[in-house]
Simulated assay, not measured.
Amino acid sequence: MSSMNDKFTVHFWGVRGSIACPGPETVRYGGNTPCVEMRVGRERLIFDGGTGLRVLGQNLLSQMPVEASLFFTHTHWDHIQGFPFFIPAFIRGNKFHIYGAVAPNGATIEQRLNDQMLHPNFPVPLQIMGAQLDFNDIEVGETLKIGEVRVETAHLNHPGEAVGYRVNWQDYAAAYITDTEHYGDRLDPNILKLAQDADVVIYDATYTDDEYHHPKTGKKGWGHSTWQEAVKMAKAAKVKRLVIFHHDPLHNDEFLDRMGEDVKAAFSNSLLAREGMSVEIAPSPRAIMPAHAKV
């Protein structure tokens, strides 16, 4: 039997984009904004701190003390608003290594997380957090070493900039690519590099092609892609499994059910991300736990 140190698993704690949207129409896929946890060998990696990070924090309370690396793609609200509610960060004895690129205006990841917790926006400052917080400014394009894990980085096409990540461990790889917009008929070489031959690619497919190209309400320039472009990318990069992510808050469960059928018809080894879902990459690449599974 394999131990946890032999595994590479991906856990989805928040899968929505733009704004949290809890309610009766989003029960099956979830309403929390982006937060994806990867448990890779001995390492725990967390990607983005949307409202799903609060849910992950509740889960971690039974596993104290915790050490993890937290990677931010960028700091638009939907990717950071869970951070002030991440309870393990307030508990002494825990340790979090926090990574993010310097913003175009020069603000570091520490400055931006600090600023959202200042009065009058939030009642307590970041400095109240009792855990050890180790902030790291990354140079996009560099490869980071986290124990036995290598994390590659690349620029994404998003207003205000964003970073994509590829996690490599042993012979396995998973890519986290959100928020990004495709370039017309040309595939983004940065995305292709992150996704090439990956076991799992989590990709921003906020819109459908019809929504993106709509003559009156089109989304070109908004910084997000479509599921059709996700399929093109997955085929070109020879991705083993494609996970559609960053669901539009206007897409209810029924809409996403239909989208999932369309995606699967176009790329058979694909699925739509659901809050609470787990995907096991190693040692069993085909294992998927249902959305209601306990993780």
Rank of each mutant, 00 (worst) to 15 (best):
I91D: 15
I91W: 11
V124E: 14
H79N: 03
C35D: 10
F47V: 01
Q81G: 06
M64C: 07
I98E: 13
L45V: 05
P120D: 09
F122Q: 02
P24A: 14
F135K: 06
P65E: 10
G50N: 10
N105S: 12
R112Y: 13
V102S: 15
G106F: 10
N136W: 07
M64E: 12
G14E: 08
R112I: 01
P65G: 10
L118A: 15
G100M: 09
F122C: 07
G14I: 00
N105H: 12
F47S: 09
A89Q: 07
P104N: 12
A101L: 06
A68H: 07
H76G: 07
G106V: 01
I91Q: 15
M4F: 10
S69R: 04
Q111V: 02
L118V: 06
N32Q: 14
D78N: 03
Q111K: 08
G52S: 09
L70P: 04
Q111Y: 11
I128D: 14
C35R: 02
V36G: 14
I19T: 08
G82V: 00
A89H: 04
E43Q: 13
N94P: 05
T26Y: 15
G17R: 02
V10I: 12
V124M: 06
Q63L: 03
L53S: 11
V15S: 13
R42E: 11
F90T: 00
L61N: 05
M117K: 06
